[in-house]
């Protein structure tokens, strides 16, 4: 399998494609350690932009706002999304309801943003952290419902009945049996919603009022030119997101061994 028909043109093409995908990010990471204000000049390795970041009050405030928003929106989304997933899986066969629930995922963010802005204005809801939390929960709930739903689909309800039959009441049955079995789905949903929330710009921009979230702060900074501090922020973001996504992936993927155990083997 080593040199069988390996076309040098294809190798070049593949390299170019990978470069196209990852070079900008690589450059960003390298420049975040550049001891120069000018992006085009390499003056040696330095952590000064990271240090500057730590003393940038506006930036830190925006990060704090974003984390608060993401945490609360995730909590709301996971609780209501899980309930919604149960309802859809067990208490309805309505296709209209089902599609209606997932629609927020398909609506363009700009439309959602404008819609929410008009809505909040109409009911004179104050714009700020609270309104962004609600806005992010709109698609967060849909996402969480979709993810938890996949976990529920393969759920054998007989295990809940077995628990009741063995003397456990409804609430302890939910806590000891149902929740542990769907837990990976809930964790995955939380990680996905959290990751999407912390870098969501468009909807937040429409609904944040005077509150500055982290993506809005970054956007306002680059209007005065890209400073290396932004590279440092972006690098930290990248690392953070990758850890979250990787964790979500590990939780959501099917357990190895489940499948093979279904095969019938003789007892010994």
């Amino acid at each position: 399998m080593t040199n069988r028909g390996r076309n040098p043109l294809l190798v070049v093409y593949m390299g170019a494609l990978l470069a196209f995908l990852y070079l900008p990010i690589a450059i960003l990471i390298v420049l975040s350690f550049n001891d120069s204000k000018l992006a085009m000049v390499w003056r040696g390795f330095s952590l000064r932009w990271y240090e500057e970041l730590m003393h940038d009050g506006d930036m830190l405030t925006s990060i704090r706002n974003t984390l608060v928003i993401a945490l609360i929106a995730t909590l709301i989304s996971v609780v209501f999304g899980t309930l919604l997933a149960f309802g859809l899986e067990r208490h309805t066969r309505s296709a209209a309801l089902e599609n209606g629930v997932y629609l927020p995922l398909m609506i363009p963010d700009v439309v959602t943003g404008i819609g929410l802005l008009s809505f909040f204005t109409a009911i004179t809801f104050p714009l700020g952290t609270g309104s962004v939390i609600i806005a992010h929960s709109v698609w967060g709930i849909a996402f969480a419902a979709a993810i938890v739903r996949t976990r529920l689909r393969g759920f054998d309800r007989a295990v809940e009945e077995a628990s009741l039959d063995l003397g456990m009441r409804e609430v302890p049955t939910f806590l000891r049996i149902t929740l542990p079995i769907i837990w990976p789905g809930i964790v995955a949903a939380a990680l996905v919603v959290f990751t999407l929330s912390i870098d969501e710009f468009i909807i937040a921009y429409f609904t944040a009022g005077q509150t500055v979230t982290f993506p809005i702060q970054v956007y306002s900074m680059i209007r005065f030119g890209v400073t290396p501090e932004i590279n440092a922020v972006a690098t930290i973001m990248l690392l953070f997101s990758m850890v979250l996504i990787l964790t979500a992936y590990l939780f959501a993927r099917p357990r190895p061994g489940r499948r093979s155990a279904d095969a019938e083997e003789p007892t010994t």
């Binding site: 009945e161 009741l164 039959d165 009441r169 049996i177």
Partner: peptide
Amino acid sequence: SKPYDRPVNMMFQSYALFPHMRVRDNIAYG
């Protein structure tokens, strides 16, 4: 009366073993 208040137990067709528990904990559950 509810299933948990009846002194009868059932073996389910799908067995309905608790997948997240060891054999020992499945058996001890009741």
